[in-house]
């Protein structure tokens, strides 16, 4: 146990948690906005993969990292719009459309990547962002180098959490999002456009998923690989439930998951040789399933989640 405790308070370990949590935080916030408006987006896994691909490609071709981030965000927003077109405008099954969006986006990501880069024995990589130490704060012991000497995308994730909470709880648009997710009929009577608000929320959600994808291919791995996302999108959906559809709690859930993931990575490395490493890889997924079992009883989803809105139908 003391070994575990020692590990936790190491700079490297804390930094690893932050790094793992960043894409999850973006993805979880994205899924949360979508679901708060009443739209489950199972396209998340594919949207993250496709955005990771376009972000990586844009950077690799242009040499500009921020252009890559922009490409990833735009990709996410466009795929969000596609999902919204099917589920909000046409009112199709959110479950099946989401799976469709994931299959389509993943297929497209693989197809375009192979078309652009061909089949190479060593996958192409990019030079990633440099870390950006924050003056004064980065001099703090332990916390400084772990938290305040990070990549700019990490800081963006840290700022995204309070910003998401502010937008959701303190702005008129956030109120509209919550209304169309809880009681679209009442929102409609109050003059809020249900269709438009849901569309906007799903697009914003998609853009955040795009940021998550960009972080994976442009910061964490500096390359695009086919197993890049490997279930992180599905995990984000579980974290939204675990975080009870709240930005702060969702971010907390992402940190908790990142802690478990970082811990299993350490345990893999620290010579517990008789246990197969796959057992550790499984751990975060089992943890998520168990966490959902514990939390779901009391979790109250937005009441209009999964329900399409058609004005003329009463």
């Amino acid at each position: 146990m003391s070994v575990v405790l020692e590990q936790i308070f190491q700079v490297g370990f804390l930094a690893a948690i932050i790094r793992i949590a960043t894409p999850l935080a973006f993805a979880t916030l994205g899924e949360m906005f979508s679901e708060r408006a009443g739209v489950l987006n199972l396209g998340i896994e594919g949207i993250m993969l496709l955005s990771a691909m376009t972000g990586f490609t844009a950077t690799s071709l242009s040499g500009s990292l921020w252009l890559g981030v922009l490409a990833a965000v735009l990709t996410g927003a466009v795929m969000g719009a596609l999902h919204a077109l099917f589920t909000v405008t046409l009112g199709l099954s959110q479950h099946v459309c989401g799976i469709g969006v994931t299959l389509f986006s993943s297929g497209l990501a693989y197809f375009l990547y192979r078309l652009i880069f061909g089949q190479q024995s060593v996958p192409p990589s990019i030079k990633s962002f440099e870390t950006l130490p924050i003056p004064i704060l980065s001099d703090l012991p332990v916390l400084g180098p772990a938290v305040f000497n990070q990549f700019s995308l990490v800081y963006m994730a840290m700022l995204a959490v309070p910003l998401a909470a502010f937008v959701l709880y303190r702005t008129p648009w956030g109120l509209s999002v919550r209304m169309v997710g809880e009681n679209p009929r009442a929102a409609d009577s109050a003059g809020v456009s249900v269709i438009a608000t849901r569309f906007q929320a799903v697009i914003l959600g998609g853009a955040l998923m795009g940021l998550a994808g960009a972080f994976l291919s442009m910061v964490q791995f500096n390359a695009f690989t086919f197993g890049l996302v490997s279930g992180r999108g599905w995990v984000a959906i579980a974290l939204v439930v675990f975080g009870r559809w709240d930005p702060w709690r969702s971010a907390g859930a992402a940190l908790l998951f990142a802690f478990v993931d970082a811990l299993q990575l350490r345990m893999q490395a620290s010579g517990l040789g008789h246990i197969p490493y796959e057992a550790f890889l499984m751990l975060p997924f089992i943890f998520t399933i168990v966490a959902m079992a514990v939390m779901s009883r009391n979790a109250v989803a937005p009441s209009a989640l999964l329900k399409p809105f058609r004005r003329e139908e009463r």
Binding site: W234, V235, I237, M292, S296, A299
Partner: peptide, 16 residues
């Protein structure tokens, strides 16, 4: 038993 969303749990189980 626990009202866990079947989509998410069955998806996560694929990885396990």
């Amino acid at each position: 038993k626990f009202r866990v969303d079947d989509v998410v749990s069955s998806l996560l189980l694929n990885s396990v």
